[in-house]
Amino acid sequence: MIDGNSLLGTFALVRYSVANATLSVMVDGVGQRASIQVDQWPFISTTICTGSTCSWEQIRSAELLQEFLRGNNMTLQVSLQGDNMVGPLRMSLRGFAQQYQKALQVQQGR
């Protein structure tokens, strides 16, 4: 999923790795904290940020994955160094479950 705001020059790339069972987000800037909310469920945050990439530990990634599979929309916010913020960026989760199933099949060698 890619979303951005061309007027502000910011972008975000949200990635779920089937192989590593982890969720990460890459932003334009140095991340300090990233938060994702699916529909009206609570935000799930992480402070595991290295440079422009923030990632969630496997247990939190698994929680977010389940929410992605059930949900309709997600909201992403990332706090950057210097008190800057990316987001809130809202993205549809339409088609996520089908793409996830395809990725699982590829990972399992089918």
Rank of each mutant, 00 (worst) to 15 (best):
residue 2 I to T: 10
residue 3 D to I: 13
residue 6 S to K: 14
residue 7 L to C: 02
residue 7 L to E: 11
residue 9 G to C: 04
residue 10 T to Q: 15
residue 11 F to M: 04
residue 12 A to N: 03
residue 13 L to C: 05
residue 13 L to T: 05
residue 15 R to Y: 08
residue 15 R to P: 00
residue 16 Y to M: 02
residue 16 Y to P: 01
residue 17 S to G: 04
residue 18 V to F: 03
residue 18 V to W: 04
residue 22 T to R: 15
residue 22 T to Y: 09
residue 23 L to F: 09
residue 24 S to A: 13
residue 24 S to Y: 04
residue 24 S to G: 14
residue 26 M to E: 15
residue 27 V to P: 06
residue 27 V to M: 06
residue 27 V to D: 03
residue 29 G to P: 02
residue 29 G to N: 11
residue 31 G to A: 15
residue 32 Q to D: 07
residue 33 R to C: 01
residue 33 R to S: 08
residue 36 I to Y: 12
residue 37 Q to W: 04
residue 37 Q to S: 12
residue 37 Q to P: 00
residue 38 V to P: 14
residue 39 D to M: 08
residue 39 D to F: 07
residue 39 D to H: 04
residue 40 Q to Y: 10
residue 40 Q to N: 14
residue 40 Q to F: 06
residue 42 P to N: 13
residue 42 P to R: 14
residue 44 I to E: 09
residue 44 I to F: 05
residue 44 I to L: 15
residue 45 S to V: 02
residue 46 T to W: 10
residue 47 T to Y: 07
residue 48 I to V: 11
residue 48 I to W: 11
residue 49 C to H: 07
residue 49 C to W: 08
residue 50 T to P: 00
residue 53 T to D: 03
residue 55 S to T: 12
residue 57 E to Q: 15
residue 57 E to R: 13
residue 58 Q to E: 11
residue 59 I to K: 12
residue 59 I to Y: 11
residue 61 S to I: 07
residue 61 S to Q: 11
residue 62 A to W: 06
residue 63 E to M: 15
residue 64 L to M: 09
residue 64 L to Q: 01
residue 65 L to Y: 07
residue 67 E to L: 15
residue 69 L to Y: 03
residue 69 L to C: 05
residue 70 R to S: 12
residue 71 G to Y: 14
residue 71 G to S: 02
residue 71 G to R: 13
residue 71 G to K: 10
residue 71 G to W: 05
residue 74 M to W: 07
residue 74 M to F: 10
residue 75 T to W: 05
residue 76 L to Y: 07
residue 76 L to Q: 04
residue 78 V to N: 05
residue 78 V to A: 06
residue 79 S to R: 10
residue 79 S to F: 08
residue 80 L to T: 01
residue 80 L to Y: 01
residue 82 G to Y: 07
residue 82 G to N: 13
residue 86 V to K: 01
residue 86 V to E: 01
residue 87 G to I: 03
residue 87 G to K: 08
residue 90 R to G: 00
residue 94 R to L: 12
residue 97 A to E: 13
residue 99 Q to Y: 08
residue 101 Q to F: 06
residue 102 K to G: 01
residue 102 K to T: 02
residue 104 L to F: 05
residue 104 L to G: 00
residue 105 Q to V: 05
residue 106 V to F: 12
residue 107 Q to P: 00
residue 108 Q to Y: 01
residue 109 G to W: 06
residue 110 R to G: 06
residue 110 R to N: 10
